[in-house]
Design a protein around this nucleic acid. Sequence first.
DNA 1: CCAAAAGTGTTGAATATACACCCATGC
DNA 2: GCATGGGTGTATATTCAACACTTTTGG
Lengths: 229, 229
Amino acid sequence: MALNRYSNADKILLAVDSIIFGFDKAGLKILLIKRDFEPELGKWSLMGGFLKEDENLDEAAIRILQHLTGLRTIYMEQLYTFSKVDRDPVERTLSVAYYALIDIAMHDKELINTSAQWFSLDKAPHLIFDHNQMVEKAIARLKRRALSKPIGFELLPPKFTMRQLQKLYESILDKKLDKRNFINKINSFGILVRLDEKDTNASKKGAYLYTFDKVKYDEKVLEGFNFKI
Amino acid sequence: MALNRYSNADKILLAVDSIIFGFDKAGLKILLIKRDFEPELGKWSLMGGFLKEDENLDEAAIRILQHLTGLRTIYMEQLYTFSKVDRDPVERTLSVAYYALIDIAMHDKELINTSAQWFSLDKAPHLIFDHNQMVEKAIARLKRRALSKPIGFELLPPKFTMRQLQKLYESILDKKLDKRNFINKINSFGILVRLDEKDTNASKKGAYLYTFDKVKYDEKVLEGFNFKI
DNA sequence: CCAAAAGTGTTGAATATACACCCATGC
DNA sequence: GCATGGGTGTATATTCAACACTTTTGG
């Protein structure tokens, strides 16, 4: 009778779709790809594929992303599982959405051999199925996360300027921040180390480069951030 | 070739498991049930069952909960999808976890005809499969939610006292709060209405009853709470 | 009359916000 | 020499956190 319960149950297709947020000088972007099979062939879509019997969801998300775009060593987080009965016109398919944040310039070389393309959030095209809904949910989650802990480890290059970090927050929260208050706030956590190097890409004077102090950051995470900005 | 992509993909069993938190005078509890089929027959478990082909996850969570416990009209929220390859020893099964918060006394009469039983969080038994992990994640989520918006609509009876609301928060956050500060904070939102009635169950003097002002509450949710307590 | 829970405000500390000028450099 | 982006501090307003006594009434 054990087997009855299991064998009477319906088996269902499981997709994994990933929302990849990227950040560069111009702000926050999203990575989309032209779907290469029917239905909706040629339409814009998230990076998606099917879960295999012998892998878990995290593994599938990584495998699919790498296969479609070349991107690797990206930290992805599970977002939500979408299950509307008719969300896929071909066959009943659930989709588990994942999302990630990356530094566009840093992963530039990996991104190869594909129709994948970055879009700024306000210029993104209409997507297949319920993918637009997934993106909306991911943006909301990203905002909430940005307010509850300093993001940046995954998103910024190892060395970055205060202004880059501020721009990142401004992109995510979609509002301007005061640079003095921002710096004071960030410094009050004591999780950044100012290096002696300067970055002269964006200015003639040059801006100090910072790195995260991983040890202090982890301590802070444990005791709980109070990150309101 | 469209069909190839789909038909080559593995189909997988999908379970839905629900963590039901309940609240009464004694504090926060969790509802567990004795599993009635193999494997692990007779062990304690979350309320679980399999997703059917013609329903979405929300519907399945409600159906399964009602079937196993009699509970109905409960608002459940999706928590996370668990996918470790060997999480179920019989067959590859993913499980989408849901959670909910209810007032124990209020749903007392619905809860029938089952081996379901309330446990306080610290006295809960060991659960089957990865269900303990699910519970931990649900507790963490509940705490975070309690800090970002006033919960209570789903959890408290229509009329409640300040002390009940405070106890609820204390249970969830697992710490004592100052009653004056708590009341001041809650009142500053302007989402509660004090009734002329008093509740004399817990005291001789009697405590004012309150209800949520749904309209003001919804306004507040839109403009964004700042609920740090 | 007394035990038990309810109700009620103020103050100091901490945190958030608003705000403007000088600096260094490449062109 | 000037245009561009970088860096820096203070004063005010807001919010948080700590704290103790009086009220009511059933027994």
